[in-house]
Each structure stands twice: as C-alpha cells, then as structure tokens.
Design a protein around this nucleic acid. Structure first.
Lengths: 229, 229
DNA sequence: TCAAAAGTGTTAACCATACACCCATGC
DNA sequence: GCATGGGTGTATGGTTAACACTTTTGA
C-alpha cells in the first residue's frame, strides 16, 4: 500500500509533553524508543496523525496507546518543522502539552512494550530528535500560563489542601511563595470550595481539603473576571 | 513528477494573518483567490511549505510572493488541522501572524496578479476555508500579547508620537485609554527615546517624536523586567 | 516535648485610577 | 479666535509585599 501526491508532502506527527506532580516535584513523562533512529533514547510520546482524526484527537490517541493516560488536560503548544529535525524524512511535529493528576492515574505498561517513566523536570536524560527544545518551550508556556489561568488544578487530585496547592505553584514557578499572601489571594478569588473534610493520620495539624469550582470560574470569566496569581 | 509514501501524508501549508495600522484603524491584509475552491473569495495569504525551508521561511516567502511585504515581525500562531477544512485533501495549516509598518511599506501588486487589499478588522468580507476562525485566534492573541510584550511598535514607523502610540493601543484593545496615565506609564518604562524632532505643519501644537529603544528592552528583560501595559 | 505543617492579621509602600486645564499651531 | 490635539499633576483607594507567632497532631 502506498500514497502518491503531485507535490512533496511532509509527514505530520503529534508529540506530547506530559506534566505530572508528585509530593516531591514536577515530573515529565517519557518513553524509551525501541526502534532507530535514536533507539534506546528517551523521547516524548507521540506519533503520526491519521487521515481522519484532528490533531488533538491524534495526541489523545497516542497518549492512550503509549501510556494508558486518559482524561487529561491537553492543549496545543507549538509546531516544530525545521527541515532535518528527523533524519529519515521531513517531519512536521505539532507539539502539545498535557497536565495529569498523577495521584488519580496509574501508568499502564505501554501496549508496545516500550519503557515509560516519569522524570523530574530538573533531571531529564538526553532526549531524541529536538525534543529537548520542545520541552523547553513547554516549560516556559506552563510557567506563564499557570499565572493567568487556573490550570494548575489539573495537576492535583479533586480534593487538595492549600499547602499542596502552594507547593504546586512553587514547583512550577521554581520560586518560593509567601504562605499568608498566597492563601489570602487564592481564597479571595472565591474559586475554591472548602470541604468539611480534613487530612487523616498526619503527624501535624490536619489541613482542610478544598475543591476547585470550575463552574464558578466559567461564570466569573464571562463577566470579565481575570484569574491571576 | 510525483511523490510516493508508505503512509498517507497530509499537505502542509502556512497561512499569514497580517496586521497593519493606518490613521483610522487596525487593518488586515487579504488576497482574492483566483482558483477553485473558493474562487473569488478573500483569503489569508499563504501556501505550501517547500521541502527545504522552515515554517517561518515558508511564511516569509509566501508573503513576499503574494504581497511584496518583507522585513516584518512574524510569529507562529497556531496549527489548524481539522480533517475537511480543505475540500480537496487533508491540509494542515501552520498559521502565523505578522505586524507590518504600513507607513513604511507599499503593497506591491502581487506577482500572480491576484488582488491584494487591506480591510479594517471590523469589516472583513466572508473568507475562504476556515480563515475566519484563524483571524479570530490571531486577534485574540494580538490583544493579549500587546499588553505584555512591546510588539505594538512593529505597527508604527520608526519615529512616532505618543498620540499615535496611544491610538495604536486603543485600536488593538478596542477600548479607550486615559491619556495622562498612558503617558506616565509608557514613559516610566524608559523604553522610549525622545527625539529632538517635532511634527511639522500640523493644525495644532506639534507633538514630539519618540523611538522605541529595542536594545534597552532586551537588556532590561534579561534582568527580569516585565513589560506590561 | 519535639517536630512539622496549618492557620491567621497588620502595616507600609507602591501602583492604578480618576480627573481638568493650559499650550501651541494652522486655518 | 477657534478648533485640534499636545502636554502636564495630584489625590484617593486598592493591591501587593513583608513579616512572626499560635495551633494541632503523631511520633
């Protein structure tokens, strides 16, 4: 089977920069390539766009196939298309970035048996193709976006404490945050619902749980409200 | 001549949303299609990416070929790839947006004799393909970006008055701006050099000319300064 | 009783906003 | 002399930033 065109057509792929957060720090999901080129190297999950699917659908499909991850926040990032970025043929990669609630999801062994693993963003291995460049752009975007859109919640479980939320911002922004000012500001937005629930079995005062009120956010946004941390 | 691949490959194009500013308002550059599909409709300038050029190079080449525009600010916007957005075949379009100093440039008759024209963004004709959607995304991006990066200057000639600069922001943001506060803020950034030059032959007090100091901006940015209007 | 994180208020500096009048020029 | 846009200062309110101690709990 083959496909013929009158003009040269590049191949088009989607690649996904998947972020997760655990107790320690911000993590990035990588898969180990089991074919040439870059066999053995770690790389971003991704693959070719099929004729009948949108770019976002392609990204979601690849994530399910390669990592089992589903139901995550996904957004287009940037398109990388330098000639020569893939040694085989001209490949245009529409990069996406995704945020996943690490606590809720379990990484399934990938269907095609390649290795999948989370790496702290500060300690990434050498990556295949131009994937280091893509990760750099994704990190920059995440840092910028987390300040003016409430996307950070996509990294936390449904219920979380203010301490967890603060650690999230500190991990993403890579700078410390004043606890009192942070709490005032985030509670001031009225986007968090306090639950009648507290931590259990912790070796310190139990923190109250909160939940992000997405409906309220959409409502406020319509009225011209702007989230900003 | 033909090109054959083992897997289906979409076509890849670049499309450009080109903004310009004249005395009256913000304008958008469109070309009139002289081939099917959408023959006769107005559309964004753009075309197929060639095998040996980067996406940005492709965008610049198309702009020169179709409009004669050169030396403009150009940035990737978003990639549109819904199946069916082009009735002929699957086409992935990497959209860019560009800002051009209307006063400095003259629109050349396009090489392939199609019509080229500037339209006020508020009065656009019906566009080909999904180009209306692309323009909408570009306008949103421009509005957002002009507030936290000094890209507005790309729409003005080298020398401009503060009044012209203010009208630029009012046109892009679609809201009035307080003159005194605007001047305080913009001069406070120290990004403008006042020139020893004034308007000539105007029927009112002659305004002083200013110039954007790009070197100073780059310098300040390195030290963590953030432009914001 | 110690360690560890939760929770809470006040002050001072700064910044954003609102607002009105005089100036220079050409017609 | 009038119409047009250029140019300027101040007061007020709101926002941010800096900062330290008490509480609860399990080990």
């Amino acid at each position: 089977m083959s496909y013929t065109y009158k003009h040269p057509h590049p191949a088009v792929t989607v690649d996904c920069v998947v972020f997760g957060l655990d107790e320690a720090d911000l993590k990035l999901l990588l898969i180990q390539r089991d074919v040439e080129p870059f066999k053995g190297r770690w790389a971003l999950p991704g693959g070719f766009v099929q004729p009948e699917e949108s770019l976002e659908q392609a990204a979601r499909r690849e994530l399910i196939e390669e990592t089992g991850l589903t139901r995550l926040y996904l957004e287009q990032l940037y398109t990388f298309g330098e000639p020569g970025r893939d040694p085989r043929e001209r490949v245009i990669s529409v990069a996406h970035y995704a945020l996943v609630k690490l606590a809720d999801h379990n990484l399934r062994a990938a269907s095609d048996a390649v290795d999948v693993a989370w790496f702290p963003v500060a300690e990434l291995p050498k990556l295949a193709f131009d994937h280091e460049k893509i990760v750099e752009v994704a990190l920059k975007r995440l840092k910028a976006k987390v300040r003016y859109e409430p996307i950070g919640f996509e990294l936390l479980p449904e219920k979380f404490t203010l301490g967890e939320l603060q650690r999230l911002y500190e991990a993403v922004l890579e700078q410390p945050v004043d606890k009192r000012n942070f709490r005032k500001k985030i509670l001031g937005t009225e986007l968090l619902d306090a639950l009648d629930e507290y931590q259990q079995d912790v070796a310190h005062r139990a923190a109250q749980y909160y939940r992000f009120n997405r409906a309220r956010y959409e409502q406020l946004k319509k009225r011209g409200f702007n989230f900003e941390l």
